[in-house]
Design a protein around this nucleic acid. Structure first.
Length: 880
RNA sequence: GGGCGCGUAGCUCAGUUGGUUAGAGCGCCUGCUUCACACGCAGGAGGUCACAGGUUCGAGUCCUGUCGCGCCCACCA
């Protein structure tokens, strides 16, 4: 039972992390769970409610490693999961990783580069083999981190987005969407990243405002002396111009409709057409149209059937269509074109201009919008259902103001480009016939073309956007499309906890695909947490070099300290500035708990208690016992409410205050004077209450305590029942008495600090005390806590020796005086409030207009005020 | 151009339907090597809750405006 003198989490945390897995206590058997739910049967190891609670981990990139943001996310999830598990619910937390297409491919390509290789040299098959190899090598790192975080996941259900089962789910989804006409293939304007060499979706681009120029260029009208001035921010695209556009109603240019202009440099003739695209109020009101390189121009090009001239290629170099500039990088071409126009006098003006450019989210390369054949999801029908699910409350956001952003995005959503020109990912299940050009989309690889029976069929070389497969995560991991036990038991999942930054990438796609594939929402609640930033509130990123490895922190401070530190800072949706002083103080907290336990165990020994039975009743409770029961109960109630509302920081704070300020600073200080086993009972419940937040140290201490318990108990604290707030102790007289002791001790300490007291008041106080508010043993406690020597005689009879008591009473008398004034003031306020509220409640117009719950709460408040007023008046009477 | 949020102690931040004396951690000051803990104990200083109005018996909390900061979305050359 002896505890080591120093709190060293490194000594036991890895042990419990290992043991939790080996003992399989976080594994759930779906069949067992189903039967249990059906029968509502009780489980010996915890009181089983028959309810289920399930969630899936947001799968981290398999070749990456976890950062401190993951630790926050996993800690919040773990609190929720452990709390539900201890409530006796059938609880599943499913772990796994994501293949993360572009990100992983980039990592492996970089590795190849260091060997002087490119993926093209290796070939597709060999490259894929290399990525798998990489995955096997580094995938374990994440799992190790998750274990050390204390995450109570079910490892038997670990999944990877490229597992055969999940790949089948991807194909199934693709085929279904294709059959319903919700997937199409075509030539459209896409965001092309010249570095990644692939198309990316709209959400994978980041817009940035940069200082650029607006170049004004003269376009000569054919067969007339007239010319139009056109402004552009991208002069290199002019080589691909196929028209000039003016607004149909712009009076300045009516006479030019249908004429042609001469494209500078190339001398090509291009038509002047009318289209609402041109804003007469902007610049000269004339727009050059490059249908192959601008999304707006693309639309105009389609509308007017203009030729599409592609002057910039996939490698961001000018194509042969760019004539003299062919082969040049797009920005080099821009420079030369501007210079050439300047020389020829066709450049009439250059003005500084702030332009918004799109960059590749991943590599920050400037996106080149270009026309390309890609696969798309027709997203509007899916978005409509997703919005309906949120609007009807089938999915709830926490914090709920995030819904606004969700709706705003969903309403303006555009079709989702899902094909990527990568090698790492799920191949698109479509086959092209080289003979008849037919495209076959199928679940299984076709042997021959279903149309012409040619064997010359080849699978589409593109892979799917990584978010397409992670969008299926909540159900593909549970066995969908098969109707599995897991799916029936755990879907829809209860909760999703993830970062706000992937709301559009992931959360919205899961909602859309979940509803489409399964007919039900993928989760009932979405908790969006904030970002962990560094101490200077900067975003954490590899390039800034401020990345924190959770394992380093865990090594230094222990997992529990890191967890409680993160939790206590985690207000819903708010970013966290990570400062080590917070974690240091959290370690001090864990140390405090450790030493409080030492004290208890030592006292057990000292008082000859060699075993402790949680079921045994402890007989009559002393003043401090009743008080701590009340505090514990109140703490449990706060934790309960806070966790229900996803206010983890509030729960953590309440526990911190209870453990340190109340249990250690007051209860134990008193209890160690007259130790009995009731302290152990409070202590044990406290450990249970704290366990979801600090699982390691509580498990360690609890197991040690239970090792001397003859009673039957759960195998792990993780399976013990969570203390429920119950009953009301606050009305108990002993609670009031203990509060008085607290005041007396505090005041006695003030006396020791040489504060002056009015002697007249001291005497009155002494008398007051004698009236039996406090017992002799209470006085001993006070004496001891306040570290003063007093005698009974002195206390009763002499005003100058009985310092502690006289002092106390002095303050008491003073506060009586103050209370009286306060009561009078308070009553005036209450009377006023009662008059106002009554008037409002009697006002028929007000009552008919105000919502029912407002009226109700006003009535309740009014009653409260009246009761308070009555109580105050009685108190005032007693003063006289 | 739209949308969302923030401004509270020296620093980092809590403060859920308005309600006694606005809180925590760190830092700072004073006193304690008290037999669980100096990763500790007891006490203290420090706030016109950005500013100006308004609603209310009562505003850090609700409304309007101003200033400062951040984020997200957006095809205006």
């Amino acid at each position: 039972m002896q505890l080591e003198k120093v709190y060293e989490p490194q000594r036991f945390e890895p042990h419990w992390a290992q043991w939790w897995i080996e003992s399989g206590i976080f594994q759930v058997d779906a069949k067992w769970a189903q039967a249990r739910r059906a029968s509502g049967a009780h489980d010996a190891r915890s009181e089983n409610t028959g309810r289920t609670f399930s969630l899936v981990i947001p799968p981290p990139n398999v070749t990456g490693s976890l950062h401190i943001g993951h630790m926050l996310e996993h800690t919040i999830m773990d609190v929720a999961v452990r709390w539900h598990r201890m409530q006796g619910e059938i609880t599943l937390w499913l772990p796994g990783t994501d293949h993360a297409g572009i990100a992983t491919q980039m990592v492996v390509e970089r590795q190849l580069a260091s060997e002087g290789l490119t993926r093209k040299q290796l070939g597709r098959e060999e490259f894929e083999r290399r990525v798998w190899q990489w995955k096997e090598e580094y995938g374990g790192r994440i799992n190790h981190q998750i274990r050390r975080e204390g995450a109570s996941v079910d490892w038997s259900r670990e999944r990877f987005t490229m597992d055969p089962g999940l790949s089948r789910a991807v194909r199934e989804t693709f085929v279904r969407l294709w059959d319903k006409g919700l997937i199409y293939r075509g030539e459209y304007m896409v965001n092309w990243c010249p570095r990644c060499q692939t198309a990316i979706s709209d959400v994978e681009t980041a817009h940035e405002a940069i200082e650029g120029y607006l170049w004004h260029i003269r376009y000569q009208i054919r067969g007339s002396g007239e010319a139009l001035i056109v402004a552009t921010t991208r002069p290199e695209t002019m080589l691909g111009d196929t028209a000039l556009v003016v607004h149909p109603e712009d009076k300045r240019y009516l006479h030019l409709h249908g004429t042609t202009a001469i494209l500078p440099i190339l001398g090509r003739e291009i038509p002047i057409i009318a289209d609402p695209l041109a804003d007469p109020a902007f610049g000269t009101g004339v727009v050059k149209v490059t249908p192959a390189h601008d999304p707006n121009d693309f639309e105009v090009g389609k509308r007017h059937k203009l030729p599409f001239v592609k002057v910039i290629g996939e490698d961001a170099r000018m194509t042969n269509a760019a004539g003299p500039y062919a082969g040049l990088d797009r920005f080099e071409a821009r420079k030369r074109i501007v210079a050439a126009l300047e020389q020829s006098g066709e450049l009439v003006k250059t003005e500084p201009y702030t332009v918004s450019i799109a960059k590749c989210d991943r590599c920050k390369t400037i996106i080149e919008p270009l026309v390309s054949t890609q696969w798309f999801v027709r997203i509007k029908p899916l978005a409509a259902k997703a919005m309906e699910a949120v609007r009807s409350g089938k999915i709830r956001f926490v914090p709920d103001d995030r819904e606004i952003i969700f709706f705003q995005w969903m309403e303006n959503i555009r079709d989702w480009c899902i094909s990527r020109q990568l090698w790492w990912g799920h191949r698109i299940p479509a086959w092209h016939c080289h003979n008849c050009q037919e495209i076959t989309v199928a679940r299984e690889t076709p042997a021959l073309c279903p149309k012409c029976h040619s064997t010359e069929v080849e699978q589409d070389s593109d892979v799917l956007d990584t978010w397409f497969s992670s969008g299926l995560w909540p159900f593909s991991t549970l066995g969908w499309p098969d109707d599995t036990e897991d799916l029936r038991t755990f879907y829809p999942t209860s909760l999703l906890i993830t970062g706000f930054d992937i709301l559009f990438f992931w959360v919205s796609r899961m909602i859309m695909l979940g509803i489409e594939c399964t007919g039900d929402v993928p989760f009932r609640e979405v908790h969006l947490h904030g970002l962990v930033r560094d101490a200077e509130r900067q975003k954490i990123s590899k390039t800034k070099g401020n990345v924190v490895d959770p394992l380093d922190l865990i090594e230094r401070y222990g997992t529990d300290a890191c967890r409680i530190a993160l939790l206590i800072s985690a207000a819903p949706g708010a970013d966290i500035a990570l400062k080590t002083d917070r974690i240091e103080s959290a370690r001090a907290f864990a140390n405090k708990l450790w030493n409080a336990s030492r004290l208890l165990f030592m006292n057990m020994e000292r008082s000859g208690i060699d075993s402790w039975d949680p079921k045994e009743s402890t007989g009559s409770l002393s003043t401090e016992d009743v008080w701590i029961e009340e505090r514990l109960n109140s703490c449990a109630a706060i934790v309960d409410d806070a966790l229900k509302a996803h206010r983890y920081h509030e729960a953590a704070q309440a526990l911190w205050d209870f453990v340190w300020k109340e249990f250690c600073d007051w209860y134990l200080e008193v209890k160690k004077l007259q130790f009995d086993s009731h302290a152990l009972s409070v202590y044990e419940r406290m450990l249970r209450l704290l366990h979801p937040f600090m699982p390691f140290v509580t498990e360690e201490l609890w197991q040690r305590l239970m090792s001397v318990s003859p009673a039957e108990h759960a195998k792990s604290l993780s399976l013990a029942p969570y203390p429920k707030p119950s009953g009301s102790w606050s009305e108990n007289k002993k609670v009031e008495e203990f509060r008085l002791i607290q005041r007396i001790v505090t005041n006695a300490r003030e006396i020791r600090a040489d504060r002056k007291i009015d002697p007249k008041l001291q005497l009155e106080s002494t008398l007051h005390l004698r009236d039996g508010l406090l017992s002799r043993s209470d006085l001993t406690v006070i004496e001891s806590l306040a570290k003063l020597k007093i005698t009974q005689t002195a206390m009763v009879e002499s005003t100058d020796v009985a310092l502690p008591f006289t002092l106390t009473i002095a303050l008491d008398s003073q506060s009586n005086g103050a209370s009286r004034l306060r009561l009078e003031k308070d009553n005036a306020r209450l009377e006023k409030a009662i008059v106002t509220q009554s008037r409002q409640l009697n006002d028929h117009t007000f009552v008919s207009k105000a919502p029912a719950h407002v009226i109700e709460s006003m009535r309740a408040k009014l009653a409260e005020y009246q009761a308070q007023l009555k109580k105050n008046r009685e108190l005032l009477d007693n003063f006289e």
